[in-house]
């Protein structure tokens, strides 16, 4: 609202006075901490920051922030945030959601917010389970998952959230995980900088209903060999001594190889700005679940006109062309006649 310098803040300034009520040991704590520690670095104001959520464990997030916040109804956060972001371009709008909220009941709103490129930063906590309703399988749960609602194992094929976002024409798509605060902060920072809809999948551990879902790839001792960091302009390599890498075969297929076998020059260099999302999509399919080497980082970051700005430009153009609306003239825009 003002143009004066943003007063410096600390993590504490971004925390509300409400007691955090997630289960002890929940991955959500570390994501909350990452966001609260990042915000002081972004040079943004509390009063211009809004967290919008739907329903689920993740959706309690706004209550714990000292910003403006709106805890809405199941799945609808991207729709609500669209109305807010398009009418208030001065605000930083964050959407905090989960795999059920964003991909099941709210799937439609998510894909449309992404394709429209409405300026909002979407953090989707993916724990591959329904937590708040106490342990049913989610649209990201693996096939054969045994849960309270699938005692014989689920028969649903899960969504790959990154593939879905890319298919929905998203301009910014990234993945991070709750065990690495620094990676979360860097990813969130990039997402926040993006002019448009930014989608971040955060692998998050639900220690009560789906404990250890990502342990095989995010555990401290396995991380180096199981997470494939995507860094723009860098060859895609991983492993303790970066001995592994990703190559693209002549038929377009991506494959994990030993760098020694193919030579460093053969390793695919990551380009998050490729206009065509095809390669990013292929990267999102590199792993079939959190037990294979899985890429993290920014898959795609491209520029496209932001929805709210385009809307505002049409209004400005109309006002320039026709002058600011005149109500009396509006009522007389059809044929009129006078009775003496």
């Amino acid at each position: 609202m003002t143009t004066t310098a943003v007063p410096p803040t600390t993590r504490k300034d971004w925390a509300s006075d409400q007691e955090v009520r997630w289960c002890p040991g929940c991955g959500d704590y570390s994501i909350l901490a990452a966001v609260q520690m990042l915000l002081p670095e972004l040079g943004v104001r509390r009063e211009n920051t809004v967290f919008v959520s739907g329903i689920g464990c993740a959706a309690r997030f706004p209550y714990y922030m000292s910003t403006y916040g709106l805890h809405s109804i199941h799945g609808r956060a991207p729709a609500i945030a669209t109305g807010l972001a398009t009418t208030r371009p001065d605000l930083d709008v964050w959407v905090v959601t989960g795999d059920g909220d964003a991909l099941s009941i709210g799937g439609n709103h998510l894909i449309h917010a992404l394709r429209r490129n409405v300026r909002m930063t979407i953090l989707m906590f993916n724990n591959q389970i329904y937590g708040l309703t106490k342990g049913q399988y989610s649209p990201t749960s693996e096939v054969a998952k045994v849960t309270k609602s699938t005692p014989f194992g689920s028969v649903d094929t899960p969504f790959n959230p990154i593939s879905l976002a890319l298919g929905a024409e998203a301009t910014f798509v990234a993945r991070t995980h709750d065990m690495d605060r620094q990676h979360m902060q860097e990813t969130f920072r990039r997402a926040h900088e993006h002019r448009g809809a930014a989608f971040v999948e955060v692998y998050q551990n639900c220690n009560v209903f789906n404990d250890g879902a990502f342990e095989k790839i995010t555990g401290r001792d396995v991380r180096a060999s199981m997470l494939v960091p995507l860094v723009h302009g860098q060859p895609i390599r991983f492993g303790e001594s970066l001995q592994n890498g990703v190559v693209q075969r002549p038929d377009g297929r991506l494959e994990i190889v030993d760098v020694a076998d193919v030579g460093e020059d053969a390793i695919l260099v990551h380009d998050e700005q490729r206009p065509d999302p095809g390669l990013a999509f292929a990267l999102s399919r590199l792993s079939h679940g959190p037990d294979e080497p899985t890429p993290i980082g920014v898959f795609r970051a491209v520029e496209r006109p932001e929805y709210g700005s385009s809307m505002a430009r049409q209004i400005a153009d109309a006002q320039e062309r026709r002058g600011a609306g005149d109500l009396k003239a509006l009522l007389r825009s059809g044929a009129t006649w006078t009775v003496e």
């Binding site: 709106l70 609500i80 109309a318």
Partner: peptide
């Protein structure tokens, strides 16, 4: 639009009302 009206053709009825609540 010269009246500053923003019209949003939403993806569904729920997004129509949701976006209006957000606004």
């Amino acid at each position: 639009k010269e009246f500053g009206v923003r019209t949003f053709q939403a993806e569904d009825e729920i997004a129509g009302v949701g976006s209006a609540i957000g606004a």
